[in-house]
Amino acid sequence: MSAAGRFLRGDPGAGRVVPRGARAAVSVGFLAGVMAFFAVLALALALAAGRLAENWSGELARDATLQIFAPKDQVEAQARAALNVLRTTPGILSVRVVTLDEQKALLEPWLGPGFAVETLPLPLLIAVTTDRAELNEESLALRLGAEAPGAVFDNHAAWRLPLVTTAERLRLFALVCLGLTALALAAVVGLAAQAAVAANGQVIQTLRLIGARDSYISHAFTRRFTLRALGGAVIGTAAGLALLAALPQASEQGFFLVGIGLQGWHWALPVLVPLIAGLVAWAVTRFATRASLRRWS
């Protein structure tokens, strides 16, 4: 049996020497649950922010648009010229004229379904897919200026880059939250373990009197606290996952901010939360009880 298996199975006798009702141990279970809940949410936030940053700096970074602002009688000619320029420019992978219906669909979330989009002076819109490494935007701008003066090429950098930065900061923030949650759990478990050792002075004195080694006493307390933290963290994680499962999915709403839930294999990651909580509780309780026992010597 592995060391972890032996630890979890435990010594049936040692498991009973720490009083079951020890308040500190109960508090550890509750707090570990709350922290695991927040950790799952922070993890989901970090993963969602990561997805957003990846999308905005990857797939979306390839997209650009070209708009034709010209008098009505010149729009078609300039559009043809612009398409011709685009098709003959290295680094332009595809071009496609966006239809009026597509423009309506794009504007609908902001203007409402009943709005008569036709009444707006909408420019002719061309969707462009680029290979940024190959595309020379300066040269393209010069050529468009000569062939289609009403054409405005937009690589979306003006709004996309701040969003990428925001998403990356959001991911960092979520990771810091995760780290702080782990630290807070460690601090709480450590203090609770020290309090439990202090509150169970009589138990420890009795165990020492009959020849228990400090490692035995420490193991008994460590196991109790680790299992409480693990149990609490499992419940907290389950609650966090239930909340995430209840959130509307990004695909249902078509808006990035509601895509905070987990996707695909990311659903497996929260399993790590109780395991890490258990490991943190084990390490901290072991250290705290041994330090307390040394001080008592």
Binding site: L207, L209, I210, G211
Partner: peptide, 22 residues
């Protein structure tokens, strides 16, 4: 100096338990 949460038979057997004897 007993552990009040354990029955007396377990208290008496505690020295065995802490020595790893079932």
């Amino acid at each position: 100096q007993f552990l009040d949460h354990l029955p007396i038979s377990e208290n008496i057997a505690l020295p065995l338990t802490v020595n790893g004897i079932d």
